[in-house]
């Protein structure tokens, strides 16, 4: 299978090109800068737009404009930049504009550091801007998935007319792996019933204002309905050695990579550990996690690089029938397979 060694950040841009993305608007920030850099290298080769915006705020508003004109459009950033983009993301959601935003999470709060963390979970998964809205969140854990899930992100964005996040951390953005490059898409979806092309037939309005209270409530209810459909249709998870597992570790992104290693290590030590990995964070695998209770696991351990943001959602899904324990690292530190195994032994006496 033809492959190319590349960083996760590059792979995402390849995915965007292959998905027919016509424009990239972004602002540099470590550890996401390679996304802008590779877009600046690649997009002009295709006569597509790369523009280094004057700010994160400008970048997301450029995304808003391009999306309103029916283009597949991408931006990328990291924590502090995502905070700045939130207003614009709310506008995109409120105006039902499809777009893709990549967040390569770093350490926070404040300036924090540029090490890997997963502390943007809440601000991304919970729709971090103002108003009632959600964004679809895909959480790749390899360079291959940075490419594949970025392509999927464009499809989902168009399918639901909603912003889609590709959410991962500095490890996945910075690491190189061999990526099998998929075929480019052959056809872009038709958006002529709503997009603005500057033609007589496309005198549409892109707007999030509903002055009338009833109108705005109606629009909010339509959005809720959409999110419900997304919740029903788009949950994606990965399991590893769960068939005979007695204990399950839950994690996404680079944590899931470490959990995979921990599972193998635990098995060498005679501990039947399995991995449950959410690939979509919204929609969150609520039913799938709830069903873990019925599968008779002795313990559930959530592993994350944040302060319990993920375990909160796991426990909501468990509805009090079981309680997940937490193993977390922060500040740029990544958990190791060894420490996960030790935590499992300590918690569950295995």
């Amino acid at each position: 299978m033809p492959r190319k060694l590349m960083k996760g950040n590059y792979a995402a841009v390849y995915g965007a090109i292959l998905a027919g993305c016509k424009a990239y608007y972004g602002y540099p920030i470590t550890p996401a800068s390679e996304i802008a850099e590779s877009a600046s290298l690649l997009f002009p080769k295709f006569g597509r737009t790369f523009l280094q915006a004057e700010s994160e705020v400008a970048a997301i508003n450029m995304v808003y404009g391009a999306a309103g004109c029916g283009q597949r459009v991408l931006t990328g950033s990291s924590g502090p930049g995502i905070s700045l983009k939130q207003e614009g993301i709310s506008y995109c959601a409120g105006s039902a504009l499809p777009c893709v935003i990549i967040d390569i999470m770093r350490g926070g709060p404040g300036l924090g550091n540029i090490g890997p963390e997963q502390s943007d979970y809440n601000q991304v998964v919970k729709g971090g801007g103002h108003g009632n809205y959600k964004v679809i969140v895909l959480a790749p854990n390899s360079a291959q998935e940075m490419c594949d899930l970025t392509m999927l992100a464009f499809d989902l964005a168009d399918k639901y007319r909603n912003p889609v996040f590709v959410l991962t951390d500095g490890v996945i953005g910075q690491m190189m792996e061999a990526v099998e490059l998929p075929e480019p898409i052959t056809e872009l979806p038709d958006k002529s019933d709503w997009a603005v092309y500057g033609t007589a037939d496309s005198r549409h309005l892109i707007n999030s204002i509903y002055l009338d209270h009833d109108d705005l409530e109606k629009w909010n209810r339509e959005l809720m309905k959409k999110y419900k459909i997304i919740q029903k249709n788009e949950v994606r998870v990965e399991e590893y050695r769960m068939d005979d597992a007695e204990i399950v570790a839950i994690g996404y992104g680079s944590c899931s990579r470490v959990i995979r290693s921990a599972v193998d290590l635990a098995r060498e030590r005679g501990i039947k550990l399995g991995m449950f990995r959410p690939i979509t964070l919204f929609p969150f695998p609520v039913d799938e996690i709830a069903s873990l209770v019925d599968r008779g696991f002795k313990g559930i351990l959530t592993v994350e690089m944040s302060d319990g943001q993920l375990v909160d959602d796991v426990n909501l899904a468990l509805k009090g029938r079981m309680i997940s324990d937490l193993h977390n690292r922060m500040g740029g530190n990544v958990p190791s397979a060894q420490e996960i195994c030790e935590k499992v032994s300590e918690l569950y006496g295995v």
Binding site: K22, A23, Y25, T49, L51, A53, E54, V57, A58, A59, N61, M62, V63, Y64, G65, A66, G68, C69, G70, Q71, V73, E87, G88, Y91, S95, V196, Y197, G198, T199, S202, R203, H204, L205, I206, N207, S208, I209
Partner: peptide, 24 residues
């Protein structure tokens, strides 16, 4: 064609609108 946009951001939005539809 009309786009209603966030406070102060019209030139940013107009930028990408113009890039997307260069004949408009």
């Amino acid at each position: 064609g009309n786009l209603q946009v966030p406070h102060g951001r019209a030139p940013a939005v107009a930028t990408s609108v113009s890039r997307a539809n260069p004949d408009s």
